[in-house]
Design a protein around this nucleic acid. Structure first.
Lengths: 359, 359
DNA sequence: ATGAAAGCGCTAACAC
DNA sequence: GTGTTAGCGCTTTCAT
């Protein structure tokens, strides 16, 4: 049987409200003697508050709903982790729901979250419903992370794909390249367009010509599409000496195409990807890439939500720029892991595991 | 202002309890007229139950706590997804907490979960505390998934590493190999030992000799360790023609060592890994590997927990065997993705995304 | 500074 | 089959 306030009150010789005032960290004035006695006995009895009862009174639950496409998808875990790390600091926990890229599921998930005792909702999905009636009626604080809209939306956090693409070009130019090609992702996708625009913008800013045949279109976001697109580019009389690809898998496909043509990466073609997925550190050559800053986006979204919960006015869309990770595919020495690779918080955490082989 | 049972009762002309009986899907008898009227008005008013209030009465919350090492670690997301898919069917959601491989954090997470309104806890961590006083006192249902203990433990789900290793050997033998080497993971790790035992057992069962110099020890679970170990093996006067590695990264390191020695995988050395991490599908050659069946383990753990919640007796430890995924590193044709690769539920879900470029 | 009283929204026990 | 009554554990008036 769990210990209640009543139990503590009886044992300490005070009334329930007084005990509550002490144990709920209320700002209400309580005598020092009482406070000490009560804290002492609460500890001794092993009191833990019943959060359901507290929620019923306060209409706060300390729980935030997080809607992801699929926790298994490449970006979701790190995004969630960013959210958690911020929320934990404020004593919130989060309920994670998958919408599986399915609008119907998403709608029912929203309704579920609205009735469930959550103080706010974070939409950590790539696409879908920009608008939901019940959600807006409910007045529940909510923010959007990673969701791409055609135009800026309040309380949302998005990646700066335009700026990221510029970083990639700057890096290649810094290495001395001027003949730089680009393989885009699926046409019409917001991130594909943004990255392409960033590429074109920075090429112009660097005073470099962009030949139309150096811009290719991949049929997908996968290795296969990148492979085929790079094959076409290599068949040109004068292929570029460097390539920026719209994501890591396309870049990897391009690398394979270069290798199959009997050429080498980075010596014959230097290649930069986008996203900094895990595989970038495992393939050969290790892939230079622009990070999709999901962790930071999660943090930003959580902070935004906390502000909303505390009654702040809706804020502007915030864009977050990822960093460039320089690795072998653009000529970093084989032995050198980038410093960032070493210092990832997650890597550090995992490393700890090596000291704890078995319980 | 949310709609309460009282509101519905007033509007429908019934008492609160009657309305409750209808709307909480109680088995209590209610007249058909009343039921219809009440359901109608509830819908019209947009009634949604206050779960905090309900929990306070029923001492059930519909929430399960899931403790993971780190949601960002390789196996956690799929394990969590397995848990979610089962729990969702029974109208449970789950609260996910990271322990960061830190026993102190884990302890405080457990305490947090115990006071929080959760109906049960799933420990989805690799290692740590087998035992926690407060947890056992609390009597809260809990099960262990993926946690490796030196001996079988009730209500736990573990991977069948021994059996998985046998699958790897059987596959290589089936391809005609008899000179088969093994590179183990860090000595002393439960999974390393199990996989080694499975390897030795199956080699013996197949009547094959195991030369001691064909068994190597990697210094870590990473590419670097696998690379170094394979280099040593390749320096032997008579290296094996096939290799089983204790995990995918070690296998990948071994592949790189073979390639750097001017040999080819799978023609000169066929290689099988373990875990079936994402990278197995992206590297060249694609990696044949034994799956770590985390999704199924998550499902099993969730089912176990539901049984516990419904008062079932503690059950035996259950071992789950992963499947073998045959890919290029043991000779599958380059163009063939294995059928399983195509049919992964997650892949299917992700594929849907391609039809939903932007909202 | 402390206690008495009230009530959050819901369900379970008991009457009729 | 329905309504009345009570109470889950907590916080918040409002007295004192």
């Amino acid at each position: 049987m769990p210990v209640t306030l009543q139990d503590v009150a009886d044992a300490a010789g005070f009334s329930v409200p007084t005990v509550s005032r002490v144990l709920s960290h209320s700002t209400y004035p309580v005598s020092e003697t009482a406070r000490l006695r009560i804290e002492e006995t609460a500890k001794q009895l092993g009191y833990t508050p019943n959060l359901a009862a507290r929620s019923l009174r306060t209409e706060r639950t300390g729980v935030v709903g997080v809607l992801v496409d699929d926790i298994v998808s490449p970006f979701a875990p790190l995004l969630v982790r960013g959210i958690q790390d911020v929320l934990t600091h404020s004593d919130y926990t989060c309920l994670i729901i998958n919408s599986d890229w399915n609008p119907d599921l998403e709608t029912s998930a929203i309704h579920g979250l609205l009735q469930r005792p959550v103080d706010g909702i974070i939409f950590a999905e790539y696409s879908h419903l920009a608008h939901n009636e019940r959600l807006e009626q409910s007045g529940k604080p909510h923010v959007f992370a990673h969701r791409l809209f055609s135009r800026p939306i309040a309380n949302s956090v998005v990646p700066d794909d335009f700026g990221g693409a510029r970083l990639a070009v700057q890096h290649l130019v810094g290495l001395g390249h001027s003949a730089i090609g680009y393989i885009n992702g699926i046409a019409g996708w917001h991130s594909a367009e943004q990255r392409k625009q960033g590429f074109l913008y920075e090429m112009a800013a660097q005073g470099l010509a962009v030949r139309s045949e150096w811009i290719e279109q991949s049929m997908d976001w996968e290795i296969e599409g990148g492979y085929a697109a790079m094959q076409r580019m290599l068949a040109l009389p004068e292929p570029p000496t460097a390539l920026f690809a719209a994501n890591d898998l396309i870049a990897l496909g391009a690398i394979y195409a270069v290798q199959d043509a009997g050429l080498r990466v980075p010596q014959d073609v230097a290649i930069v990807g986008y996203d900094n997925r895990d595989l970038a550190r495992f393939v050969r050559p290790r892939l230079t890439t622009v990070e999709m800053p999901v962790y930071e986006m999660g943090q930003a979204a959580a902070e935004l939500l906390l502000q909303q919960i505390h009654g702040a006015a809706p804020s502007e869309e915030s864009r977050i720029l990822g960093r460039l990770y320089v690795r072998e595919s653009t000529g970093a020495p084989v032995e050198a892991r980038t410093q960032e690779d070493r210092l990832t918080a997650t890597d550090e955490r995992r490393r700890l595991l090596n000291r704890n082989p078995e319980s």
